[in-house]
Computed example of a mutant assay.
Amino acid sequence: MMFEHLGARPRIHDTAVVAPTAVISGDVEIGPGCQVLHGAVITAEGGPITLGEYVIVMENALIRATAANAVHIGDHTLVGTLASVAGATVGEEVFLASGARVFNGALIGARCEVRVNAIVQRRSVLPEGTVVPIGWVATGDPARLLSPDRADDIAAAMPELDFPGHVFGVDRDTPDLMVQLTERYGSSLARHADDRQV
């Protein structure tokens, strides 16, 4: 299904194939030879999304742009089943395995691999050819690769990355953080009330 959102309609190349149960919403451009499989969601929440040539988006993957962070996915990249990309730039010939997560402001260089259930934290930069092992976390610029058993090191990196401030514009130390976050984000998401199926 395709939806016009905030006055923008998806643009899909004639040679791309989008499954009938995929959802494409807003300012999304899907390039030649792309395949978007069943249950995938590609939603431009105020910022554009571009998929280059021969990008494959597997079942139930999520690609979301925000007003602050557009998404670009380079040619010949595969976004695996249940993977998600939020407001990030992904280079050419990248493999995002099943369950991989890439967060806002991240930059993934060409020919990187983010393996099963691995995470690339917000504003982190993976140099070309980097491999993030299964379940590991990449954080920083350039990214440090941390194994899941290094929970203290991962937690220590979180405040510097400032997820609530960077993504939602809410200071982490706000006493009613979740109240502010959900009300602000809810207002933003309510803009879908005027979406039209195309």
Rank of each mutant, 00 (worst) to 15 (best):
A100C: 07
E113P: 02
E92N: 14
V85S: 02
V102P: 06
V114G: 04
R101W: 04
E92D: 14
C112A: 11
F103P: 01
V116Q: 02
E93L: 03
G99C: 05
A88V: 02
E113N: 09
C112S: 12
A100I: 08
G87T: 00
S84K: 09
G105M: 07
C112G: 09
A106F: 13
A86P: 01
C112M: 10
F95H: 11
G87R: 00
R111P: 10
A106S: 14
A106P: 13
R115G: 00
A86F: 00
A106W: 13
A86D: 00
R101N: 10
I108N: 08
V94A: 07
V114K: 03
S84R: 12
R115M: 12
C112T: 11
V116F: 04
R115H: 11
G109T: 13
V116N: 01
R115N: 12
E113T: 08
V102R: 13
A110K: 13
A88M: 01
S84W: 07
V116H: 07
V102K: 13
L107D: 09
I108G: 02
V94I: 08
S98K: 04
E113D: 08
A106M: 10
T89C: 00
E113C: 05
A86Q: 04
A88K: 03
R111K: 15
R101K: 15
V94E: 12
T89N: 02
E113H: 08
V94T: 09
G105S: 06
T89I: 09
A83F: 07
A110V: 02
V116Y: 01
G109S: 13
F95W: 09
S84T: 00
A106L: 12
F95M: 15
L96H: 06
V114Y: 01
A83E: 07
A100P: 09
R101F: 03
R111V: 05
S84V: 00
A110F: 04
L96A: 12
V116P: 02
A83I: 11
R101E: 13
G91V: 05
A110E: 15
G99A: 04
A106E: 10
T89K: 02
L96R: 09
C112F: 13
F95N: 15
I108V: 15
A86G: 01
R115E: 10
E92P: 01
L107C: 13
L96S: 11
A97V: 04
A83V: 06
L107M: 13
C112H: 10
V90S: 05
E93Y: 13
S84N: 15
N104G: 11
A106N: 13
I108Y: 12
V94N: 12
C112V: 11
A83W: 07
V114T: 08
V90G: 06
V114A: 03
F95Q: 11
L107S: 12
A110Y: 06
R101Q: 14
V85T: 04
F103S: 14
L107I: 15
S84E: 14
A86Y: 03
F103Q: 15
S84P: 00
A100N: 01
E92M: 09
E92Y: 03
G105T: 10
S98V: 14
G91A: 07
A88R: 03
A106V: 10
L96P: 10
